[in-house]
Amino acid sequence: MNVNEVPQDPRNIKQGDTVRKKIYAVGQDGKYTGINSVGWDAENTALKQAWDDIDETLAETEKQVRAGGLSPIPYFMQKNLMDLALLARYMGKWQWQVKRHFKTGVFKKLDSGLLAKYATIFNITTDELINFGKRD
């Protein structure tokens, strides 16, 4: 790739346009040199696809939590871009144990220590965790 071919397609996704990566390209003298790039359409597409998928899944989960079909745990798990395996690893629990906490009935009976641990991992307060999606 020559320096004049270095793509400059702005990465307008979640403040991604604030980073201008350095890319190596061949200059007119045939020598490699570093050039800043604001983004490349192909990469931006892949990045946008990943975020769209996250946002769509999260919106769907939020609906289910608000409808009372799921506890707030899976919502905040997805909001923190975690899957069940990763959340279980952070909690120091088996996946089936964490999965049980997805059930609204089980979630209501969780002790304050466990709730606090979840809240810390999700970077929110215990109140925010408990009250998410509750109907007024």
């Binding site: 790739m1 990566k21 890319i23 192909a42 990469e43 597409t45 892949a46 696809q49 990943a50």
Partner: peptide
């Protein structure tokens, strides 16, 4: 589409792997 997207993300985003690594 997600699988393909991930190949590209690992290749070109923070990782810089594919073409970027060849130029490097």
């Amino acid at each position: 589409a997600l699988y393909v997207g991930n190949i590209i993300r690992m290749q070109e985003e923070i990782g810089t792997g594919g073409a970027g690594f060849r130029y490097l």
